[in-house]
């Protein structure tokens, strides 16, 4: 999902950055507030960020014969909410843009929007909705993390389609083409991300019940 450095026209790069900045700024304030109100969750926040670090570093082979990586954002989106996750994801994307030439500074806004905002919002919405509807923690986390991962890649495909409409079939045609590149490769990886996040949540509900309770009724249910 990393749009390479320089691969978005200036207007698009600026537009996505402008769209992402408020989410990240709000998330930064929410992190400060969360740590003030619930200092016992500090370590869990760090561990959730670390989970994004690990998963987004793993380039995993897929049935399509290409490799891609999970996002790791579903866990912190379920625990801390999407705006906090926006900050964690931005840190990871910045690390990769500066040290790995993976993604880029000019495309940071767009990449933050797909991986650190859109995916986490989908994951958070699903996690809340499914737990409220009475689904078990494992089922809710699985679908949240899996579909959040897929959503990130679909947004990337749409961002590229908007920037590079097909000369014949337009934005819609380009969207189909970019989705065909990302979605089939990502599908099995998204399942893996869902399963891995269930494993971590299982461990959390065994060892970190206090912190889950402190984070609120939904997370506490886990």
């Amino acid at each position: 999902m990393h749009i390479m450095e320089g691969y978005l026209p200036v207007s698009h790069a600026l537009g996505w950055a402008a769209l992402s900045i408020p989410f990240v700024a709000y998330g930064a304030r929410k992190i400060v507030r969360t740590l003030e109100e619930k200092p016992e969750t500090k370590m869990l926040l760090a561990a959730s960020g670390a989970y994004v670090f690990v998963l987004s570093a793993l380039k995993i082979p897929s049935v399509t014969g290409s490799c891609s990586h999970p996002t790791g954002t579903g866990l912190s989106a379920s625990l801390f909410g999407p705006s906090v996750t926006a900050v964690l994801g931005t840190i990871v994307l910045l690390f990769q843009a500066l040290l790995l030439a993976h993604g880029g500074l000019t495309t940071l806004g767009a990449n933050v929007f797909s991986m650190a905002i859109a995916g986490p919002f989908v994951a958070y919405g699903l996690y809340r909705g499914l737990t409220r509807a009475g689904a078990s923690m494992a089922v809710a986390v699985f679908f949240a993390a899996m579909l959040g991962d897929l959503a990130t890649y679909c947004v990337t495909a749409l961002q590229l389609a908007l920037a590079f409409p097909d000369p014949v079939s337009g934005v819609a045609g380009a969207a189909v083409k970019f989705l065909a590149v990302f979605a089939p490769t990502q599908a099995p990886l998204a399942v893996s991300e869902g399963l891995l996040t269930v494993v971590v949540m299982n461990l959390l509900s065994r060892y970190s019940a206090d912190e889950l309770k402190a984070l609120g009724p939904v997370a506490g249910k886990a």
Partner: peptide, 22 residues
């Protein structure tokens, strides 16, 4: 290979004249 690179190739296919500006 990486799916990101395949997307990059698709960009050049759609817009052969596109030059990354950074």
């Amino acid at each position: 290979g990486g799916a990101d690179n395949r997307a990059q190739n698709l960009i050049t296919e759609i817009r052969p004249d596109y030059q990354p500006w950074f």
